[in-house]
């Protein structure tokens, strides 16, 4: 049952992912991408990571995609000119397929060992996913966490400086 549900959602994710690449209009691409994000959020829930699912929707589908849509509409972009589209499809597709084949080969060759760490379904149910993430983040990964915040600050400043009309 769960597997069937997985296949269904996976199919939706792949189709919408394909549409992201395929659609002529950037707006359509963006909508498809949001769809993919939702599918991924579903997978996160299935993987017992509800906090990640939540921020997937909040950050990606909410913040980043809205920003992208804003820019698309701000610049009033239409579909790209057709004559320029098929320029290097063959090469790009070939490269993509090669990557795919290689990863498949990789998956078949290797074996996921499944070394069990301390995090189990019961633990997550007992303590709560958010709290577990928060604890790890603010103990073991405190320094990267702070650095990430500085990175975001720099990005904000950079974006303002770049997008400002007059320096």
């Amino acid at each position: 049952m769960e597997l069937l549900f997985f296949y269904l959602v996976a199919l939706i994710a792949v189709i919408s992912g394909f549409l992201v690449v395929k659609c002529q209009s950037p707006v359509n691409s963006a909508i498809s991408l949001v769809m993919t994000f939702f599918c991924l959020a579903v997978f996160y829930v299935m993987l017992h990571a509800p906090f990640m699912a939540a921020i997937q929707i909040l950050v990606y589908a909410g913040a980043i995609m809205v920003l992208i849509l804003f820019v698309i509409m701000l610049l009033n972009l239409g579909a790209e000119a057709n004559k320029r589209y098929a320029h290097s499809v063959a090469g790009g597709a070939l490269a993509g397929v090669v990557v795919l084949l290689m990863v498949f080969y990789f998956l078949r060759q290797g074996e996921a060992t499944g070394m069990k760490g301390p995090i189990s379904t019961e633990l997550i149910a007992q303590i709560g996913h958010t709290e577990l993430i928060g604890r790890t983040m603010l103990t073991d990964f405190l320094l990267p966490f702070e650095i990430a915040s500085i990175l975001l600050l720099v990005a904000i400043v950079g974006a303002i400086v770049l997008a400002k009309k007059e320096v």
Partner: peptide, 20 residues
């Protein structure tokens, strides 16, 4: 940009293939 991106992908494929 595409040429550069393509080069990157090819390089990545070659390196991964080498280790594989």
């Amino acid at each position: 940009v595409h040429n550069y991106a393509m080069t990157m992908v090819v390089g990545m494929v070659v390196i991964v293939a080498f280790f594989l």
